[in-house]
Design a protein around this nucleic acid. Structure first.
Lengths: 138, 138
DNA sequence: TTCTAAACAGAAATGATTTCTGTTTATGAG
DNA sequence: CTCATAAACAGAAATCATTTCTGTTTAGAA
């Protein structure tokens, strides 16, 4: 939790009950969630939270590296807590329970070199989505 | 073109003027396009085409492997012609001109093994989006 | 404690995507 | 080469996730 609160502070975002609740929710759930999931689950904990607030917080958190945004195959927005903010890495998502785990390993160099050599292009970014079944679900 | 028409036939999709026009457009443009781009550009060639038709065709084409669907960072739907339907590979997209090139190389095995070993999970699919500047734009 | 910019709720707007309905068309059978 | 029929299609309308707007509340620095 401290790690994330620090991220807020260093980005001059105030620590508000709603923001803490969102971090808390992601920490407790440990899964990928969309805006509506967050909205729904926080109705229980907070007297009230509006959808615009949810969207704004998820977006802010993504910008400061607390969450990573991805788009599932059904084209819905999904967010997951990022345990290694700032460091380049990827995430593995379980197709069944939506649990997200860090993959502290990236072997993109070869692909990158292949492209730079064969296409004479400059690779600037890559995004990798890895899905499957986690240890419990498989 | 023949390759794509075959794909239509083998999936029992009729060869209609609109479908041919969409294939033709993607072949001539060679870039990633969204539904509205397609709609707009085809207004010139066809007397009229409706947005529902564009959406339906893009979706059908994706299902039969003629197009690959991706979601750009701005979360817009983008489609690109796939020159190697059926074979596992990736695409490189130029951030400036939106040109899409095939990357007939995938070095995902190591990452996959890393995950299966460390997370005890079963990797079922991965999607890689590679962006940068093509040879002309860089 | 006070003040001010940042957060926020709720309502309304937006805009991409989909559904619906009636018409047209590609294509296989005769 | 017709004809019949299921598939395609246009246009209008509906849907629904996301964003904007406005007035109110609040976190946190002074």
């Amino acid at each position: 939790m401290e790690l994330y609160l620090q991220a807020l502070k260093s980005n001059r975002l105030k620590i508000t009950p709603r923001r803490k609740a969102v971090i808390d929710l992601f920490m407790k759930q440990g899964i990928q969630m969309g805006p509506y999931d967050v909205y729904e689950k926080l109705q229980n904990r907070l007297s009230v939270i509006g959808m615009p607030t949810v969207y704004r917080i998820l977006d802010e958190f993504t910008k400061v590296g607390i969450l990573v945004k991805s788009l599932s195959e059904d084209r819905q927005l999904r967010y997951a807590l990022c345990a290694l903010p700032g460091e380049h890495h990827h995430h593995f998502t379980c197709r069944k329970c939506r649990k997200v785990e860090e993959v502290a390993f990236c072997d993109f160099n070869k692909v990158s070199k292949f492209i730079e050599k064969n296409l004479k292009a400059k690779v600037e970014a890559h995004q990798l989505q890895i899905e499957g079944l986690c240890s419990k679900c498989k």
